[in-house]
Computed example of a mutant assay.
Amino acid sequence: MNIALQYLEGEESLFLSNKGNKVYIDEKEYEIIDESGALKEDAIHVFNYVSVNPASRERFEKRFLNRPKLIEKEKGFLSIRVLRPLTDNTFLILTQWETVKAFQDWQGSKAYQHAHKKRGTKEGLDQEKGVLSEKPYHLLFKTKK
């Protein structure tokens, strides 16, 4: 699958390609370590970028592999890919949604609160010293027409 994407809040565009257990964002290669749902061409694509210190990669991956998997039950959810970077230390969590509103509803849901309940606490990876090398952020893209 090959998808041309356009950033929702600007002119930036990128190209997403999925081949077997690999996902390519432009020229950057990732390995899929967790997935649910089929990737769709026509969707809202949310890219969550999480920079992890090299010594903490295994801990970060373990946390995601043991996630509660509540997102899959949300209205408007299409798919998720947890992607391990092969050239640097920025993981990518790609989710696909039917609409921007469906993604925003997920962010305001009890399921989201549960999935992120440790954020900001001493048990959260965001507070544990040495795990994250930068503050995570997300960008929204749509299929380029």
Results as ranks from 00 to 15, higher is better:
residue 139 L to Y: 08
residue 64 F to C: 02
residue 96 Q to H: 07
residue 27 E to R: 13
residue 7 Y to T: 12
residue 77 F to H: 08
residue 71 I to Q: 14
residue 88 D to M: 09
residue 40 K to A: 10
residue 140 L to N: 06
residue 99 T to N: 13
residue 23 V to H: 07
residue 9 E to F: 12
residue 35 E to F: 10
residue 20 G to N: 01
residue 71 I to L: 14
residue 16 L to A: 10
residue 135 K to L: 10
residue 71 I to G: 12
residue 35 E to V: 05
residue 47 F to R: 02
residue 77 F to K: 08
residue 101 K to P: 05
residue 7 Y to C: 12
residue 24 Y to M: 08
residue 32 I to P: 12
residue 38 A to N: 07
residue 143 T to N: 13
residue 4 A to C: 04
residue 54 P to V: 03
residue 70 L to R: 15
residue 36 S to L: 12
residue 138 H to T: 08
residue 38 A to L: 11
residue 139 L to N: 13
residue 140 L to F: 06
residue 83 L to G: 07
residue 127 Q to H: 11
residue 130 G to P: 03
residue 3 I to G: 00
residue 15 F to Y: 06
residue 25 I to G: 01
residue 124 G to A: 07
residue 105 D to E: 14
residue 124 G to Y: 02
residue 72 E to N: 12
residue 62 K to M: 08
residue 24 Y to A: 02
residue 45 H to K: 01
residue 4 A to S: 11
residue 136 P to V: 05
residue 123 E to H: 11
residue 130 G to D: 00
residue 100 V to Y: 03
residue 29 E to K: 02
residue 28 K to I: 00
residue 19 K to F: 00
residue 82 V to N: 07
residue 142 K to I: 02
residue 73 K to E: 07
residue 78 L to I: 11
residue 18 N to C: 13
residue 145 K to V: 12
residue 43 A to C: 12
residue 29 E to M: 07
residue 8 L to F: 05
residue 4 A to F: 09
residue 94 L to E: 03
residue 64 F to M: 14
residue 44 I to H: 05
residue 108 G to N: 15
residue 54 P to Y: 04
residue 86 L to I: 12
residue 49 Y to F: 15
residue 50 V to S: 00
residue 68 P to D: 08
residue 67 R to N: 13
residue 81 R to T: 05
residue 65 L to H: 10
residue 142 K to E: 10
residue 145 K to Y: 03
residue 93 I to F: 10
residue 65 L to P: 00
residue 25 I to F: 09
residue 110 K to D: 14
residue 60 F to Y: 13
residue 119 R to V: 00
residue 21 N to S: 09
residue 60 F to E: 04
residue 145 K to H: 03
residue 114 H to Q: 15
residue 92 L to H: 06
residue 142 K to P: 02
residue 138 H to C: 09
residue 16 L to W: 15
residue 117 K to M: 04
residue 61 E to A: 07
residue 67 R to F: 07
residue 110 K to H: 06
